[in-house]
Design a protein around this nucleic acid. Structure first.
Lengths: 206, 206, 206, 206
DNA sequence: GATGAATGAGTGTTCATTCAT
DNA sequence: AATGAATGAACACTCATTCAT
């Protein structure tokens, strides 16, 4: 019967995490009280605390899930497409956005709204900051590698500095999240993704 | 003597705002206590409260200053360069970054570190959200106009959607701030600015 | 089968009480959580609660056992020794210490460590306080009676006030328990008992 | 004007400590809530917390005061009386009891009622335990020294083991406190002190 | 105007106890 | 009879704000 209990535990943790995510997306980490989360999860304090030891652990669990997304995504970049080629950088960017929309935790908008709070937190938490740096660097490194490969194939302007190019790609992702947080459904994610891909991958007419 | 008093009041307000900015940049809005600000400003609670009615007002004043920067910057875009032409979009982006570095309030890094907190705040304050939307839209509209003009002059790929193009330009700015918050001095702002300009303004070889 | 069940119940109660005693000795009544007791007894909450209605009842049961020891001990004093005489007070004191060491519940040190907590509890519980007063008075009365008898036999200084003498004897017992709680095995109980007996029963040289 | 503030601070601390002492004497450390103390001190939570950082610090301050009493008292023993002699042990005991009654903090009964709680605490706090051990050992050592001196002067039975004798003297003090906690005003402290002195110092008839 | 001691509502968290299974 | 997940009242503590001096 451990199976039942294990599943039950996992389900409860998901339930609580989802509730916390909604609260955090609405109010931010600090303005969200544990009471808010108890109410949203329809559980008592004791119940929530038997699955997560503290508010910080709840926050950490959500952040970990997001960092996991970044890591998985970055890993994808080094894998060649079916035709044996590496993605063009803009194509990779579009895929990230695509994957982001399909991510399991909460809704697209909730995840976007949590994003600035996450950035704010990592600024004062050296451990978190290290994790975020690592995640971003990995992703940036991925874009850099794709840019170099594209330059070698003559598909990307040789004048672009691949390192900074990676940063710009990251910015296009970060900016999308921030603007989703500001404008909500006012942002057409697909149009944004197409425009970003076009900007980055546009052919040098010759 | 009203002049002196007015100046005195303005100076005190600046002193307090600068102290608050340093605190907020270090700890975020919520983790910063009013005590932190009293200490940083070397003033008593009563003194600070006679210039700002509440912590929220202090936050609002800082955000207002930042939005003021955005508004002024956006206004610049519609003014033609000495040669009568409008800026190319990438050039405009570089100028924004340039102006950002010269902005009077706090240091470059402090302003960057406050940025995610500002975004987080506006997500739960409709009034603030409206102001931020307006500011971003203005800036985005500026980039859009510059893009259209550049397209008309044949300096920008006709296939790029000017509206989304504006969003991308905003993202490049937002991403710079976020990455400054994550990596601090690890970011070479000028290199970033050059790369961004190059990406946006690059000539289509023909 | 009621016999078996009764025995089973009694055994379970003993098991739980012993576990509780160990916890209380380690942490005191208030710092011991019911969880601690469940763990120590290797029983579920429900199981423990079906034998004891509350934490307070558990505490009461332990205190009752200890007061039972006091009552039994006091009863002993009125019984003459084989030679028909009553004990000398110091001898009685040594016997109490002797009996204390053989008491069935927990270890010598555990009982000593619980002692101050017991005293603390009775101070705020009138019912418990009455029971403790009665127990101490009985023991003190026992010493008083022995002292009077010894005085009559010329074995104890006539100048000693028998009532206060009883209190002093009690103190020598209480002090032993407290010092066991402070110094643990650092106290040589037998040496203490001998010294106490010597102090109380010492012959007036004549 | 620092004088006023300093005095004010000291007065407030005394006020709060006295209130805490009354609460702790009534309910023990753990059953006393900070609310109880706020009410007893007629101060708000914030006010109390600006003088003592935590409940533990409040407890520590009270314990420190009591340990200070023990240390001062022990120091007294080594000082000879006006006639150049050292006290007889029973006389020293009476003086300790005398001093105890005059101690500045709270009332005689309050201090007695706190005593078992203090003992209980030190059992689980190694640091506190070390301090208590040291305090008791110092006092016991004092009694031991006085006993040896008395033995040398022929005023105390040579058969008494001075080390254990010291323990017994400590017990007579501890027992007095415990019995005060149990019987309150039912204990005649002076009668107890006289009896204890008589028991310890009684002349060996010759 | 300026001070800083004081307020008290609100926070995260614990734990004795219950009850559906 | 036994389990252990769940409850929720209560706790220690914080901090934006006020106001007597």
């Amino acid at each position: 019967m451990p199976k039942v209990t294990e599943e039950h535990v996992a389900a409860r943790r998901r339930q609580i995490l989802a509730a916390a995510l909604r609260c955090f997306a609405r109010q931010g980490f600090h303005r969200t009280t544990m009471q808010d989360i108890f109410r949203e999860a329809e559980l008592s304090p004791g119940a929530v605390y038997s699955y997560f030891a503290s508010k910080d652990e709840l926050i950490a669990a959500i952040i970990a899930a997001m960092m996991g997304f970044v890591a998985e995504t970055a890993a994808l970049f080094s894998q060649p497409l079916p035709d044996g080629r590496l993605r063009r950088p803009g194509q990779a960017l579009a895929e990230v956005i695509e994957r982001y929309q399909r991510f399991e935790l909460g809704t697209v908008e909730e995840r976007a709204r949590i994003f600035p709070h996450l950035v704010g937190e990592q600024q004062r938490d050296p451990q978190l900051n290290a994790a975020v740096r690592a995640g971003i660097e990995r992703l940036r490194g991925g874009f850099e590698a794709l840019a170099r490969a594209a330059q070698e194939r003559g598909e990307l302007d040789q004048d672009l500095d691949p390192e900074q190019f990676g940063r710009l790609a990251i910015s296009l992702l970060q900016g999308l999240l921030l603007q989703l947080g500001v404008f909500g459904a006012g942002i057409d994610i697909d149009a944004y993704a197409r425009a970003a891909t076009a900007l980055i991958d546009r052919e040098l007419a010759e």
